[in-house]
Structures are given as C-alpha cells and as structure tokens.
Design a protein around this nucleic acid. Structure first.
Lengths: 195, 195
DNA sequence: TGTACATCAGTGAACGCGCGTTCACTGATGTAC
DNA sequence: TGTACATCAGTGAACGCGCGTTCACTGATGTAC
C-alpha cells in the first residue's frame, strides 16, 4: 500500500534535521532560509512542509536533536570525573572554536535561542537539562540533582568562553581566552568537589 | 552657508546609533531592518545612506559605541575591587537579564558578532579590550596588562551566564543560574587575587 | 525688515532579491489482477 | 510475467512581503541683497 517503506520518509526527515543543525550553527538561524536548508539535504523548498509544520517547528526539532546528540557524545567519554575534564578540554579547544558547524549548539546559537518563540526555548531547556544532569551524575554521583545548578553555571561559562573566542579578531588573544577558560573551569570544578 | 548648524546632522547620527543599539540588542542584528532602525530614530529609510555607508558600517559603529558607553558606565562605579563586585552583581541581575535592550552588547549579540564581517569583529575587539583593560586596572593596579586575559575570561563567563539565563524557559532554573554565576565569578576573582 | 535664492537633511517610491509558505503537478514505486 | 492503477515523496512556480540600497524630489532653513 505505502509506496516506499516507512523508513524512507523518516530517513529524509532525519537528513533535513542533521544538515539544518549544521547550517544553523554555522550561519545562524535567521540567516538560514528554507530553500538553502532543503538544498543542503538534496531537496527543493516545496518538500519542506511535508516534513515540518513551519520553520519554527524545524528549529525546535533541530535544537532538541542537537542536544540529544551532544548527550550521546558526552556519554561516550571516559567514565567519572576524568571524562568531564576531557570534555572541558575538547570543548574549549581551537578545533571546536574554528568549526562551529560541528560543535555545540549552545555556543553557536545561545543568544539567538534567547530571542526565539517559547516552543524553541522549551525544547532547548528540556534538551539542555538532560545533558546537564548526565554531567552532574558524574560530578556528584550521590546526588546529581544538587549538582544541576552548579553544572549549568559552569556550562554557561564554557559557552560564553567559546563565543568570545569566536568573536575576537585578534587570534592570539582569542587563543589565550580558551586556555584561561580551561584553567578557570577546572578550578571551579575542583572547588565544587571540595564543597 | 550651511543650512543647519554642524551639530544638527551629528545629533541625528547620534540618535540613529543609540536607537539602533537598543534595537539590535533586543531583536538581534539580522532581524533589524533599515526601515525599522530609521523609524526608531524618527526618520524614514531613505535618509540612512546620508549617515552610513552600509548596514555593516552602522553595525560596526553601533558595536563600538555600545562598548564605549559600557566603559563609561563602568568607570562611574565605586573605586577599586568593590566597584568590580558591584558590577558583577548588577551584570548578573534579573533586571539586566530581562532588559537586553538596555544591557550589555556582548551578552545580547556575542554569537551574532562572531559571524559578522571582519570590520565588525575588529570594532568589537577594540572596544571590548578597552573595557577589559579598565576593569583589569582595578583588579591588578600594578600590572593591568597581566590581568587582561583573566579578566576577559571572567567576562566571557558572565556573558555566557546571562545568555543562558535568557534562553531557559524555566524561570526558577534561570534565576538560580544567575545566583550561582555570581558565586562562581566572585570565587574566580578571589582566586585571581590570591595568585 | 522683506524677498529671492542656494543649501542639503530628509522623503518616499522604486530596484532586484530572498524570505516563509502554498499548491497543482510529476513520476517512481509497490500492489492487484 | 505483464499491465493498469493508486499512492505520495518530492518538484518548482507562484503568493505577498520585507530586505538593503538608490535616487529624483521636497521643503525648511540661513544668507544675501
């Protein structure tokens, strides 16, 4: 009865979400038009509305998907606190700074998300708290919930550091900000451990 | 000979820069069109090009102006380290979070600036370093230059904290992130003092 | 003091373009006989 | 096995609109006489 297997349309939807994630992070949400997003996925603009109700729907879906992926990446790291430290060093790396399309959605889109409609902010909040609680579970295995706010705070500081490093025209200063950020984040994690 | 005094056109230019700053911070750079920006200043779109060469020119000028203003605000605070602490508390306040149009340009626009043309990033870098070196001069009066990278790093963390608080749909968590951010920033400043 | 004039800040319509969205359609596919 | 048909993912042109930018113009002003 169905012309293609059920997987076919789902696979296309998946492709749109993945290429849109990359495009949004590289160029920003506002600067990425439907036609461009669909061309990235090898399709034309008309097919968009067979998959999503609106651009806002895609944005919310993409944000949620990006955070789900980030959560998976995180869970693949070395166990315990060593994994967290590795994560910090990779996050605040020159590699990450210079490839926003492959990187953290928060660092690339945080202030744009802050201006988005409620549904996008809700998807962001839900997705981020899932990532954060995973990280918190490593830092305070006994009581991950208590670590939530501190982990959120440190995470916010990491996104701000990466963003600033991307915005500075002076490469030497931009690199130094990353290095100093690693020092400061690790110091905060140590202080949290001691409390 | 000149129809109006020289001040007249300068005053209009000033007005455009100020209202544009507010609009950019509230709605984002990309979402703010020339017609809207000019209407904010009580003018029509056509007059824009008598004052600026392009939208990019306005953006770079506005970014520089915003940072100049931020620098002035900072220098009006209580002297010494007390002023820095006051600044941190006001920066990471609910008031500041809920009024981006009147607040810090970095917090409102940082990832958008990271995607801008070189001239905008240069204007941002120059303006920000002037602010940062003022702050550094308070934290390490003997050698402000040495404080530059640490101050930049802490500042980046403040912008990230404010941005995250703006992006979270859960008000309670958003408020907690600000409070935790104050704790963490002050802890970093204390640690820096001790070194 | 009153009138004619030159200046030029600001107006508003127009340019081509890309936006988000709609829709009549195409054409490759799996199914029915 | 071969043909007719129903399905529906994807096409591509079109919609009204706002974008950044250009330009012929208006009209309030200060100056000259």
């Amino acid at each position: 009865m169905a012309r293609y297997g059920n997987e076919h349309k789902q696979a296309t939807r998946r492709r749109i979400i993945e290429t849109s994630g990359r495009r949004f992070k590289r160029d920003g949400i506002d600067s990425s038009g439907i036609a461009t997003l669909m061309a990235d996925a090898g399709l034309t603009n008309g097919a968009f509305y067979a998959h999503f109700a609106s651009k806002d729907d895609l944005v919310a879906t993409t944000v949620a998907d990006q955070l789900r992926e980030q959560r998976e990446q995180f869970s693949a790291l070395a166990p315990g606190r060593a994994g967290v430290e590795q994560y910090v060093r990779e996050y605040l790396s020159i590699q990450h700074r210079d490839h926003p399309g492959e990187g953290c959605p928060s660092a690339a889109l945080l202030d744009e998300i802050g201006r988005c409609a409620g549904a996008v902010k809700q998807a962001y909040t839900d997705g981020l708290l899932a990532v954060i609680d995973d990280i918190g579970a490593r830092l305070a295995p006994d009581n991950p919930q208590s670590a939530r706010v501190q982990t959120l705070s440190v995470f916010a500081m990491m996104t701000g550091t990466l963003q600033l490093s991307r915005a500075l025209a002076d490469r030497q200063v931009a690199d130094a900000v990353l290095a100093q950020g690693i020092q400061n984040v690790l110091a905060l994690l140590d202080a949290g451990q001691r409390t």
